[in-house]
Write a protein that binds this DNA or RNA. Sequence first.
DNA 1: ATAGCGATGTTCT
DNA 2: GAACATCGCTATA
Length: 178
Amino acid sequence: MITPLLEGPVLEAAQALLGRRLVSDVGGRTAVVLTEVEAYDGANDPASHAYRGMAPRNRSMFLGPGTLYVYRSYGIHWCMNVVCGPDGVAAAVLLRGGLAVEGEDLMTERRMGRRPLAIGPGNLTQALGVTGDLDGSSVIDGPLRVEGVAMGGRIEASPRVGISRAVDRPWRFALTPD
DNA sequence: ATAGCGATGTTCT
DNA sequence: GAACATCGCTATA
């Protein structure tokens, strides 16, 4: 088992990721506490990149729990997911935002002074230095890692952002820290 | 404060 | 060709 929190039903995994530290060692140490995620249920979810099966881009979604899936969004930004389904099951959690807790200077530099620092999927990857190079890496022992729970709080569910299929599923989860 | 729009890689029709 | 799990600049109010 990887860790009980990363493996299992994607709705549970998504909520379990909230409040955990996301630590990057790409070009220096930066870290956030995750505050916003979305669940995508692979073959069972018309909004998932894996709904129509494997393609070159989404290959890493099928590699098992704890795999990082990084893709280009709108040709410009990088977005990242943590896979939580077993091998061959492409359920994954899109990481959408966090609170900066370490290396804020480096994040500010990478973000070129823009705010917010790490809210929004494209902003989050930029702040942490995550690019397509990390696609397929492990969040357990790779350059970008999910670590222990840092913060508890209240979790709120709402519709996912920016999609046009399966819009009725309230699978976006946001954490309001205590 | 809100609205429109450009940038542009990968997938889908 | 069109759509897309986005973002930030610009224009108008």
